[in-house]
Structures are given as structure tokens and as C-alpha cells.
């Protein structure tokens, strides 16, 4: 089964209650490509800190991405309008920022 078929079936299973058009699927595939390519390219920026770190982070990202395909739909489900998820990510982000800036900047 090709990746497209896998993607389409996954999409239908997740959103079967709603009306799905080929535009929705093409949008999701675009999101998938943007997330994967941009994240990997952004990781290359770490070369300004350390080449070894860049290689390690890219390998970790590759494993994470390949084991979580299709990633855009999972992102979409996490980025929903529920106040629980929004609050959770706000607090998580606050923790990451404070830790990263405080210990990263010292």
C-alpha cells in the first residue's frame, strides 16, 4: 500500500463522521510535507551551536517523524479548541521556555 493510500485511510478513519473532499486530503498532505521538511531544515540551524548536536537531533527527529506518520493529522487533533489542551500546552510551553532560557542562558 502506498503512503498516499495509507494517508487517505487514516484520514477517513479519523474524520469519517464529517464530509471529506479531495481538498481536505490535499490540504492535509501539504501540511504533512511542510511540517516534515521545515522541521528538518530548522534543525539544521543547530549547526551554529554544534555539528554533533545537529546530527543527533536530526536522527531523533527522523525516528520521531517516521514512527508517528501521518503527523499533520495528529498535530491537527492536538491543536483543537478544547480549553484543557490549550491550557496544558500553555503551561508546558512556560516550563520549557523558563528552563531553556534560564539554564541555556547561564
Amino acid at each position: 500500500m502506498s503512503f498516499y493510500d495509507y494517508f487517505l485511510n487514516y484520514f477517513k478513519n479519523r474524520f469519517s463522521k464529517n464530509q471529506i473532499t479531495n481538498e481536505n486530503v490535499s490540504g492535509a498532505i501539504l501540511a504533512e510535507l511542510v511540517i516534515i521538511s521545515s522541521t528538518l531544515i530548522a534543525a539544521l540551524l543547530l549547526r551554529h551551536i554544534s555539528i554533533v548536536l545537529t546530527a543527533v537531533v536530526i536522527l531523533i527527529l527522523l525516528v520521531l517523524i517516521l514512527s508517528n506518520l501521518p503527523i499533520s493529522i495528529k498535530f491537527f487533533q492536538e491543536q483543537d479548541d478544547s480549553i484543557e489542551k490549550m491550557t496544558f500546552y500553555a503551561i508546558l510551553c512556560l516550563g520549557i521556555i523558563v528552563s531553556l532560557v534560564y539554564w541555556g542562558g547561564l
Binding site: N24, L30, A31, V34, I35, A42, S72, F75
Partner: peptide, 24 residues
């Protein structure tokens, strides 16, 4: 030193999330 780094990180994250979620 960390100012530019966190600014680039969050800006790229915003751009990726913004356009990919808009596409869906």
C-alpha cells in the same frame, strides 16, 4: 546571547504551525 535563538525558534514554530493548520 539566547535572545536571538529563542526568537528564531518560536518564529519558525509559529510559521510551520500556522500554515499547516490553515491548510487543514
Amino acid at each position: 546571547d539566547i535572545f536571538k535563538g529563542v526568537m528564531i525558534f518560536i518564529s519558525i514554530a509559529s510559521m510551520i504551525l500556522g500554515v499547516s493548520m490553515a491548510a487543514m
